[in-house]
C-alpha cells in the first residue's frame, strides 16, 4: 500500500470510530473484544442465576474437598479456626454485632457459589472446578441444614435453595436504587 492510501485508510478508521462513539470525547483507543474472549474473567454469578456454569456436586463429594482444602482454616466441622466458622449462627436480634454466618445472614446461595469459586481457598483462588464448587456449596448448605444431605447441587437446584435470611435486607437509600 502506498503512503497515501495508508493515510487515507487511517483517516477512514478514525472517522469510523468517531462515528461509533455517541459523541467522541476520547481518542477511541479501546480495542474491540468478543464476549467469548472475556470468559476467563467473566466469573460473576448473579442472584437471578445468570452465569451459573454447568456442572454438579453433592454434599458427600464436598465433604472430601472441604477436609482437604478448607478445614485447616475453617475447622474440621466448619466451627472456625484461623478463619471464620462456616456453620451455625445466632439470631440477628442478639445485637448489631452478631457474627454474620451463612445460615443467619447470607441472602442468596448464588453468593456462596460465587464467593467460593472466586476467592477460596484463600491462597489458591480459582483453582476449584465448577463441579467442586457445586459440591462445596452443597456441603456448606447441608451442614447448615439449609438443604438435605442428598440434594444434588447444579444450576437448577441451586436456584431453588431458600436462604433463611433472604428477606432480611433493605436498601439504605431506596431512592438511589436503579
Amino acid at each position: 500500500m502506498s503512503m497515501r492510501s495508508t493515510q487515507r485508510l487511517a483517516t477512514l478508521v478514525v472517522l469510523a470510530s468517531a462515528a461509533f462513539a455517541a459523541s467522541a470525547q476520547g481518542p477511541g483507543l479501546g480495542i474491540p473484544i468478543r464476549e467469548a474472549d472475556v470468559a476467563a474473567w467473566d466469573i460473576t454469578v448473579f442472584p437471578s442465576g445468570a452465569n451459573l456454569p454447568s456442572g454438579r456436586g453433592t454434599a458427600a463429594e464436598g465433604a472430601v474437598i472441604y477436609a482437604q482444602q478448607c478445614a485447616a482454616c475453617h475447622g474440621v466441622n466448619g466451627e472456625g479456626g484461623l478463619a471464620a466458622p462456616v456453620v451455625g449462627g445466632d439470631p440477628l436480634t442478639n445485637g448489631i454485632d452478631t457474627p454474620k454466618r451463612i445460615k443467619n445472614f447470607w441472602a442468596s446461595a448464588t453468593t456462596l457459589f460465587d464467593f467460593t469459586r472466586r476467592q477460596m481457598p484463600l491462597y489458591t483462588p480459582r483453582t476449584l472446578t465448577d463441579d467442586q464448587v457445586y459440591a462445596l456449596t452443597a456441603y456448606l448448605l447441608a451442614i447448615n441444614d439449609i438443604i438435605d444431605e442428598d440434594t444434588v447441587m447444579n444450576a437448577e437446584t441451586l436456584m431453588q435453595v431458600q436462604m433463611p435470611n433472604r428477606n432480611g435486607f433493605k436498601p439504605r437509600f431506596p431512592a438511589m436504587m436503579p
Partner: peptide, 14 residues
C-alpha cells in the same frame, strides 16, 4: 450493618 430489629441495611453507598 445489622439493625436492632435483626434486619440489615444493604447498598449503603454513601
Amino acid at each position: 450493618p445489622i439493625l436492632p430489629d435483626g434486619s440489615a441495611y444493604s447498598y449503603y453507598f454513601l
